[in-house]
Design a protein around this nucleic acid. Sequence first.
DNA 1: CATTGATCATGT
DNA 2: ACATGATCAATG
Length: 226
Amino acid sequence: MSPLPAPRTEGELLRRATDIAGCPLKELAQRAALTPPGDLRAAKGWAGTLIEAILGATAASRSEPDFQLLGVELKTIPVSREGRPRESTYVCSVPLMHASGMAWEASCVRRKLQRVLWIPIEGDATISVAERKVGYPLLWSPAFEEEAALRADWEELMDMVCLGQLEQITAHHGTHLQIRPKAANSRARRWGIGETGERISTLPRGFYLRASFTGSLLRRHFVIPP
DNA sequence: CATTGATCATGT
DNA sequence: ACATGATCAATG
């Protein structure tokens, strides 16, 4: 496949995304000269990377929005037959040091979620990766209430990170945004802040959006049925 | 059976 | 090393 030029406007991006709605992944893979894996166990990011290539994303594996010119982040999301998200959505890593006094406005969570192109993909395990179909896209920015709710979660969680309560954070915290491990394995280490303010060696963490949050936003925009 | 904690591959 | 793309697999 010849390298696709990056979309120059949101409209162009959205048109490309709409054009592939209903398409099985094998068809898109063929365009990109790729072969769909039998399962995603050893290729967890395969579908996301494929859609990036198909839509002409430019920032693969860089700390930039996927569509740099447009400031748009691409997120594929696996959905069940009923259209419900099957998984949470990774947002960004959690800053474990030097984050005291950081404002929501300056956070990576807010920056990442400022403008997102959501693309649902059939994620039922009974459907082979090749046959899974791409759904209709949603170009989304958080509504005022959504951002306020995310901000409240972020502030509560980051307070814990900065006040030495990192080890007490579990995935149960946060209504819409949660903190979970994000690492190669459970032996991975980063520096964090301990109970008495000392440096501790801890597991790297990431911010994730709960499936309930992405589900309600897809429903609210009529991308998936109620 | 939904959710949490763990994990996989690849690029810079 | 650490970011990107996420899903897997154990657990309650």
